[in-house]
């Protein structure tokens, strides 16, 4: 009973905050409300027994996305204070369209074929062979590792997409992220005390990801947050985008992933298949490399393209 009341309140709250972020007057408010929405949403994920997703949603869906959105809102939001929408009749059509989509989907809840489908049994049946304890990690790195590999390429291409927006002259230079101009000693303090803790936590997240919720994405996001903090506080110089060490960190994860994929051709004879008995160590090695790469890529995505005039 209490659980149902809680769920109902949570569902209403998520819908309400979601609607509020669509309607908010100022764009900066809309973005901040959206971040709150993301945090509430991770609570929903906990409630439907998807802890891995809850962590990802909090880290990437709300945290990393929120960081980018806030920066963009402050940069572009000043030009127009009020919310501009399409004119009268179009607005009515949009409302009708949106509500019919929502109602149609909602009604499907009652007509989805009665017997729920699930691959949970299949996943668990083969999971012991891989040595992993977390079934979600099993899906991500054993059964559907091809998706995960392609998704790494997607991240890499997204980074190139961001870099491509810099100018020819500044190619390979320092990203346009501005370190805090004033001497804010507290931020520097935070940037010196938090990263060791964050680093430990990121390693922990990745390490336990094989057996309990956690993993490379979540660990990587924590890593990225620490790095952005350090860059913003000006504690460490932001590296040049052409720096070989930086490039190595970016590709470390994909390289290990691809290497293990090709290793599968040699033994046991199939791309992305793991040699008997070596699945777990290989996956852990892959996740460690991926944590580093994801952390660096997420950090660089928020740092933006190299931009000579903003760098100083």
């Amino acid at each position: 009973m209490t659980e149902q009341v809680f769920d109902a309140a949570l569902a209403l709250l998520v819908m309400g905050v979601g609607a509020w972020s669509m309607m908010a007057g100022r764009i900066t408010s809309a973005v901040i409300i959206f971040i709150v929405y993301g945090l509430l949403l991770s609570l929903v994920w906990v409630r439907i027994a998807a802890i891995d997703v809850a962590l990802t949603e909090a880290a990437i869906g709300s945290g990393a996305t929120g960081m980018l959105l806030i920066a963009a809102a402050y940069k572009t939001g000043r030009e127009s204070g009020a919310r501009e929408t399409v004119s009268g009749s179009l607005h009515v059509i949009a409302v009708l369209l949106a509500s019919s989509v929502a109602l149609g989907l909602a009604s499907l809840a009652f007509v989805l074929p009665g017997e729920p489908v699930s691959l949970a049994g299949d996943v668990l049946r083969s999971l012991p062979d891989s040595g992993l304890g977390n079934p979600v990690a099993g899906v991500l790195f054993v059964y559907r590792s091809f998706d995960t590999l392609l998704e790494k390429i997607v991240l890499l291409v997204a980074l190139l997409g961001v870099w491509s927006l810099g100018s020819d002259r500044d190619w390979g230079g320092i990203p346009g992220l501005k370190p805090f101009a004033q001497k804010h000693s507290v931020l520097v303090l935070l940037a010196r005390t938090l990263p060791p803790i964050g680093l430990t936590y990121a390693i922990y997240m990745t390490w336990v990801g094989a057996d309990v919720p956690g993993g490379a994405f979540q660990g990587g996001t924590v890593l990225a947050a620490m790095w952005v903090l350090v860059m913003l506080a000006g504690v460490r110089q932001i590296p040049r985008l052409s720096s070989p060490a930086l490039r190595a960190a970016i590709v470390a994860g994909p390289v290990v992933f691809l290497a293990i994929g090709f290793l599968g051709f040699v033994s046991p004879g199939q791309f992305l298949a793991y040699p008997q008995g070596f699945a777990k160590p290989l996956i852990v090695a892959m996740e460690i490399a991926l944590t580093l790469s994801i952390g660096v890529i997420l950090g660089l995505l928020s740092a933006g393209p190299s931009n000579g005039k903003d760098a100083r």
């Binding site: 027994a49 691959l119 996943v123 668990l124 979600v136 991500l140």
Partner: peptide, 20 residues
């Protein structure tokens, strides 16, 4: 939810990929 798991891990994993 089946086989002692709170949910089907396949869609959960796909959602993680989707979020990224």
């Amino acid at each position: 939810a089946a086989a002692g798991l709170g949910g089907d891990p396949v869609p959960q994993a796909l959602v993680i990929t989707g979020i990224v």
